[in-house]
Amino acid sequence: MSAANPGATSPQTVHVPLGDRSYDISIGNGNLAEVGRWVTSLRKVTHVVLISDGNVAKYYQQPVEDAIAAEGIRVTSLGVPAGEQSKSVPTAQSLWEAALADRVDRKSTVVALGGGVVGDLAGFVAATMTRGLDFFQIPTSLLAQVDSSVGGKVGINLPSAKNIVGAFWQPKGVLIDTAVLKTLPRREYLSGLAEVIKYGVILDADFFAYLEANVQPMLNRDPAVLQKIIARSCELKAQVVAEDETETTGLRAILNYGHTFCHALETVSGYGEYLHGEAVSVGMLCASRLGEKLGVFDAESTQRQAKLLSALELPVATPKLSETAILSAMQRDKKVEHGKLRFIVPHAIGKVVLTPDVPSEMALAAWREGIEDESA
């Protein structure tokens, strides 16, 4: 640890093994300055389409643009409004047309600089422009660093369903700089911690216990703890993606623990009312209560999740919304098969199971029980 940078940590690499689509995730503190050399070390690049949003661009667009241009690469910088609403057909079309206007061709490369919205949107543009462009992920939110930037899921929303239009399009590399989290608004940062907790519940009981023991360092954004939880989250996701890249066996679906409830909440409440991680927090507890109702999970483990989520200042109560609308949104979830609801249900901390044919009334009861009693 250097005196010049007291938060410095030794960089780590997490490999995502996918045959000819394999790539590395480079995790460090202060490594954003190396982005130009990093890109050129992985691919021959002559033109980059750099996509970001207004919140991120004011801090990092110019440094990233300069670092890439310093390698002799032409850069087209395109911006989108911050927020979930940008994951839309009109925004994607505006990016296609702007890239085309600046002479994009089949050897151009897309670089996504931003959180999950930018990563999903830019990746979708890369997957569809000229039938597929190379792209790199530089996630700047915790949620994107531990989840959406890894695994190749890209896409946009329709007004009636989240992430329903998209593709599997793997990046050529992911660069994670924990130092950028210093400028991340507190609410956004806390939102990302929900996805970190998810990995402990679905795959790693020891990791979950580590999170329980390190609440204050996480709240303080301690660099060493951040690097550890980001690296472990990426390792766990890489393991799942390597075994089920395109969700054909059902294994990758476990990464959507809590997300059937979460996506319904986001859709019915209006995109943007809840940050994604906040909705994941509520959704995980709904799924946990569903596990109790199915007789495969215990109330004590549900309480462990609720206690940890609350300690990290994440929402745990279910809002009062139309149950008809919630059920309708859940029935449009990507995990629905032959019209039947399927949920990721916990059996123990560290183990979840994709469960078919869950009665809709049982799912709604798990939702309903999370609503706070205002008369109490």
Rank of each mutant, 00 (worst) to 15 (best):
P6C: 07
S10I: 13
S10W: 04
I27D: 01
V35Y: 06
V45F: 10
T46Q: 15
G54E: 15
Q61W: 01
P63R: 04
E65C: 08
I73H: 10
G79V: 00
V89G: 01
A99D: 03
A101R: 12
D102H: 15
T109W: 08
V110H: 06
A112E: 03
G114Y: 07
G115M: 08
G116Q: 04
G119D: 06
G119K: 05
T128H: 11
T130Q: 12
R131P: 10
G132P: 13
Q137K: 11
I138G: 04
S141V: 05
S149Y: 12
G151Q: 03
V154L: 05
I156L: 05
A161Y: 01
K162M: 09
K162Y: 05
A167Y: 07
P171C: 08
K172T: 06
G173W: 13
I176L: 11
K182M: 05
Y189R: 03
L193K: 10
A194C: 05
E195N: 04
I197P: 02
Y199M: 15
F208P: 09
A213N: 14
Q216Y: 00
I230H: 08
I230K: 02
V240F: 11
V241H: 12
A242F: 11
E243F: 02
D244A: 09
E247H: 02
H259T: 01
V268Y: 06
S269P: 01
G270P: 04
E273I: 02
Y274R: 01
L275Q: 10
S281L: 05
S281P: 01
C286R: 01
C286M: 11
R289N: 03
E292V: 15
E300M: 09
E300N: 12
T318W: 01
E323M: 11
R342Q: 14
K351Y: 06
P356G: 08
V358Q: 13
E361V: 10
A366L: 01
E372L: 12
